[in-house]
Structure formats: C-alpha cells, structure tokens
C-alpha cells in the first residue's frame, strides 16, 4: 500500500553550499539521498512531495559540516503481511512465480498456487488449470495476498499466496485495460 507520511532526517551539508540558495541545496540533496531508498520500517521512499520544516543547523566541530534536522513528506510504498494487492508476473518457473507490485518483489511458491494448476515448461513457462481456462505466465496480472515479508538493508522481499478465495489471475477486462 502507498502512504503519504511525514519523515525526519538529519542532513549534513558542506560549508561550500552556504549562501542564498542554502534551502534549495538542502532539498536537492535530500531528494538525492532519500528517494529510491528502502528501510524495513517505512518501506520504499518513492517520492518526496514537500519539505515541512528545516530546523536550526548545528556546526560539527572539526569538519565544519552543518547538520540540519529536516521534516519532509513523502510517498512511500510499504507492503504488509495479510495485505491483498494486485501485481504483475515477471518470471515463472517450476518452483513458483515472481511478481512485482511497484518496487517490491513477491514470490509465490508452487505450494501456494491452487492444486489444480499445473506447471507447463516451454518458451513461455506457465501454470495452467487442467481445462486450460486459467493461465499464469509472464505479464499476467494477479491478485495475491502477502503472507510474509523479509526485510533486507536495501530491499523488502515478500512471499505471497493465490490459494484463497478471490485471489488469482485478474480477468476482468475493465481492470486490465
């Protein structure tokens, strides 16, 4: 799920940036440092939408760098256990399939794919029901439930399932359009 939250960060700025454009420099550095990063607590920082407050700077002894406490608002993506969301399948193999929902990777093991779906190898590996009516392959859109998350220093990985009511391939043309 995407959230709009307020975050705080202490920014260190080199003295060469001090001058009339100090604020701009600080904001530019903040965007460069923070956007695209990921933490276990807040998830992926997608975009900074505004800077709320820049506190008083504190000069560091010895280096001359100044530390500013900055409060900013950002759009973040944070997956939760138990959350249901839509994702695009990126890779299918006999172990299961990988899907992507925005910046996050989700793996669905073949144990968590309904039992009536069989793996078919070939040019386009896929999972298909015995009557061939439902097929999961690369670029399919699926609705899945996140059942586990693993937090890394720079990434979040999720484990998902489609073995539940109202989960699986989305075939509503209105949604896929």
């Amino acid at each position: 799920m995407f959230f709009h939250i307020t975050l705080e960060r202490n920014m260190q700025l080199h003295p060469r940036h001090f001058g009339p454009h100090l604020r701009d420099k600080l904001v530019a550095k903040l965007m460069k440092d923070v956007e695209g990063t990921c933490s276990g607590r807040h998830g992926f920082v997608v975009a900074i939408t505004g800077v709320e407050d820049i506190g008083k700077g504190l000069i560091r002894e010895g280096t001359g760098f100044v530390t500013f406490p900055v409060k900013y608002q950002a759009v973040v993506f944070r997956p939760f256990k138990g959350e249901i969301l839509e994702a695009v399948v990126t890779m299918v193999n006999k172990m299961g399939f990988f899907a992507e929902a925005g910046p996050v990777q989700i793996f669905v093991s073949n144990h968590l794919i309904p039992d009536d779906m069989e793996f078919q190898s070939g040019d386009m590996p896929n999972y298909t029901t015995s009557d061939g009516s439902v097929k999961i392959q690369k670029d399919s859109e699926v609705r899945l439930k996140i059942i586990g998350t693993r937090v890394d220093a720079t990434e979040i990985f999720c484990i998902g399932t489609i073995k539940d009511d109202f989960l699986g391939v989305i075939n509503d043309p209105g949604v896929t359009a």
Partner: peptide, 26 residues
C-alpha cells in the same frame, strides 16, 4: 503485523493512505 486485522503499526494507521490512482497523479 497483520493487515487483515488492521495491525499495521500506529505510524501507518494514522498516516494518510493513498489509492493507486492518487499515487499516479502525484
């Protein structure tokens, strides 16, 4: 943490959620 029971932590419970369409606009 369990989204099905709305246990997503205080910080996120109070935060503003965004629908995909809103994120697209931002």
């Amino acid at each position: 943490e369990n989204a099905a029971e709305l246990k997503i932590g205080d910080e996120f419970l109070k935060a503003k959620c965004l629908m995909n369409c809103e994120v697209a606009r931002i």
